Computed example of a mutant assay.
Amino acid sequence: MSELSFREAITSDVDRCFEIESMAYAGEEAATKEKILLRIQTYPTGFIVLENQDEIIGFINCGTTDNVVLSDEEFKALVGHDPAGKYVVVMSVVVDPKYQRKGMASRLLTEFIKRMKALHKSEIYLICQSEFIPLYAKHDFVLLGESDSSHGGLKWHEMSLSL
């Protein structure tokens, strides 16, 4: 595999990010192209892409706030986002299927956590499906319990990481 690098997303990344999001998430679980573009434009600091020399192979994005409500669907459109907020809410951690099961999500998480610490954020929150709890636990996220969110008609679990 060619050399990997991280950077903040730019608006011209929207098509590739949407392609990855659509391949990796089922149906309504995937963010729309418009939401992805909004996230890049609104908070590029919290939208990190992982790329090899050829293409973007994964990304992680978030918003920040001082009032975390993980079941709030409006926050996925960054309603209530405050760049100065001390709490980070992750919206997507996604890797192109052809690069999955090769440690790419862990690399993204490690880089993302490092960047959020550098920004002096105090905690990272996310919701995930059951099969991803071990991935996040490996990065010291703590399971908070079942979420009230029914995003995409699925069952979710809330997790957090104190920074």
Score class of each variant (00 low, 15 high):
18 F>M: 04
133 I>V: 15
105 A>C: 07
76 K>F: 13
129 Q>L: 05
66 D>G: 14
135 L>P: 13
107 R>L: 07
23 M>P: 06
56 I>E: 08
83 P>Y: 08
81 H>A: 02
37 L>S: 09
88 V>D: 01
109 L>E: 00
127 I>K: 04
22 S>A: 13
95 V>K: 02
29 E>F: 11
72 D>S: 09
118 A>S: 15
102 K>G: 07
107 R>Y: 07
135 L>H: 15
108 L>K: 00
86 K>G: 04
113 I>F: 11
31 A>S: 10
23 M>N: 12
95 V>G: 03
116 M>H: 02
108 L>I: 05
68 V>I: 14
56 I>P: 07
32 T>Q: 10
22 S>M: 08
18 F>L: 05
48 I>L: 03
18 F>R: 02
73 E>V: 14
92 S>I: 01
68 V>W: 15
50 L>W: 04
36 I>L: 03
102 K>R: 11
73 E>S: 15
24 A>L: 11
135 L>N: 14
132 F>D: 13
130 S>V: 08
70 L>C: 13
44 P>F: 06
72 D>W: 12
26 A>Q: 15
120 H>L: 05
95 V>H: 09
126 L>V: 06
126 L>R: 01
50 L>V: 04
97 P>K: 09
63 G>T: 03
31 A>D: 13
51 E>P: 05
71 S>R: 13
104 M>N: 01
81 H>N: 09
107 R>T: 03
126 L>Q: 03
97 P>A: 08
123 E>N: 08
119 L>P: 08
23 M>F: 12
95 V>Y: 06
96 D>K: 12
32 T>H: 07
104 M>F: 04
60 I>Q: 01
